[in-house]
Computed example of a mutant assay.
Amino acid sequence: MSLDLSVVIPLYNEEESLPELVEWIERVCTEHKLSHEIIMIDDGSTDDSWKVVEELARDHQSVKGIKFQRNYGKSPALHEGFKAAMGNVVITMDADLQDSPDEIPELYSMIMTDGYDLVSGWKKVRYDNAVTKNLPSKLYNGVNRRLTGIKLHDMNCGLKSYKRKVVKSIEVYGEMHRFIPVLAKYAGFKKIGEKVVQHRPRKYGSSKFGWERFINGFLDLLSIQFVSRFGKKPMHLFGALGSFTFLLGFFFTASLIIDKIRLGADFGITNKPAFYLSLLAMMMGTLFFLTGFIAELITRNAADRNVYLMDEKIGWEN
């Protein structure tokens, strides 16, 4: 029997919020008659989060847990959660209770009834610090919209719903969880929607993210643009650059040789800066070609990019 819903929750040092979060999800899913599983991925917590997950798995048949041996980050946690998810719809949310489980029924309906491939939450009213989080987030999302063409106000919102096929078709690695809608778009899923969701004040603990996420986020966006377009065909980029650069240097060198033949001994090729620039261009073109070949070899032999060490798993026998 297939499940209606998988709720994937990456967590790091959130022991206080987990019982309340699970009870809330259980209540909402029961009220709306949604068969479900709750997959909690402990990303190497240093508090008692895993003990709490073990207790919740004993008390609730729907709860399943994965524990990383160390802290890998949110993207690897989501990757493992997506691999394990069995529901027709997959919903992700943060473990800190700032995402409301009351949003689950409508997010589920937008996938199953309205036919969206992916629905991203939009925290239109936020309770974060306006200077350190809200303003940078608006600038960050504005750049994302312009570069990717995906008209979302809050691409990095942790509360999202997906068609199961989407999470099984994309690969979330590094810090690419910020750009899952971009990954989905490049995988061929075009119907991407948005829903205004409630953003709740943080009840326990403190934020795990700082200013560096915006710098890293911009670099990751450039990476994903490159990987999405040329990840499977790197020679198309490096070969084009190599051809252009090599031919530019070749034609300049040829013109200098022609001038030497035409003007004779009065024309010294090696005295011209253009001669050395031409040689440099030809060498750079050759290097671009070699880079393309090496990248092609790496692309075909990177089978273990998403292998992560785990200590334990619980709840999968149910």
Rank of each mutant, 00 (worst) to 15 (best):
G239K: 02
A302M: 14
V196P: 03
Y12Q: 12
S75F: 09
T30G: 08
I192F: 07
K160Y: 03
R200W: 01
Y72F: 15
K208L: 10
L183R: 03
L280C: 01
M235D: 02
E54L: 15
H60A: 03
Q69V: 10
D99A: 13
Y12I: 13
G65P: 01
M1D: 14
K190L: 06
R200I: 14
N301F: 05
M93K: 00
G44I: 10
S161T: 12
A85P: 07
N301P: 00
C29L: 02
D94Q: 09
D47E: 06
K313T: 15
F230R: 03
F238W: 15
R58A: 14
N13R: 08
P273I: 06
V89A: 07
I9Q: 00
Q61H: 12
I104M: 04
G268V: 05
Q69K: 15
L248R: 12
L118Q: 02
A95I: 12
H199A: 08
G268W: 07
V307K: 15
G264M: 06
L241W: 02
R178Q: 13
A184D: 02
E80P: 03
A302F: 07
F179T: 14
E20A: 14
G249R: 01
L18Y: 05
L135R: 12
K313S: 12
D99K: 04
D154C: 03
P76E: 04
D47R: 06
M40L: 15
D102N: 06
K74Y: 07
D43V: 04
S161C: 10
R70S: 14
